[in-house]
Design a protein around this nucleic acid. Structure first.
Length: 112
DNA sequence: GCATTGACGAAGG
DNA sequence: CCCTTCGCCAATG
């Protein structure tokens, strides 16, 4: 039996990612740190892997690694889909890396 | 139950 | 900047 508010780590990750403002990005580690897991950035990535088909949809394209690289683009429907989604939101991507990453960076621990 | 993998990150060379 | 090593933890074989 599942109680209301019984959020798993995965769902908690989805909740944070869904709150990323349009045109901004964050990193797996930042989300992990906000959730208190700190070094479990891999789990955030794993959560994204299971994020497909989630309702409401999880904007996984706004989550990149600490360098601003679209490390997970290969997991989207198409390797170019992630970049296209970001550029459609006003985030420029060059060589699989977010341009002006530090300016686009959205830190949940600070902004949330 | 152990070994390997991974959409990561930090530190060291 | 590039590469290697280590830590972290769930999923998978």
């Amino acid at each position: 039996m599942k109680k209301s508010g019984d959020y798993s780590f995965f769902e908690n990750v989805y909740d944070v990612v869904r709150q990323i403002p349009k045109g901004r990005v964050t990193s797996y580690g930042a989300v992990a740190k906000y959730l208190g897991s700190g070094k479990s950035a891999r789990m955030v990535g794993w959560a994204m892997n299971a994020a497909h088909g989630q309702i409401p949809p999880v904007p996984a394209q706004r989550v990149v690694n600490s360098k601003g690289v679209l490390s997970g683009k290969n997991h989207f429907a198409s390797p170019t889909f992630m970049q296209e989604l970001l550029e459609a939101e006003g985030v420029s991507v060059k060589d699989d890396t977010v341009v002006n990453f530090e300016k686009k960076f959205w830190n949940p621990a600070v902004e949330l």
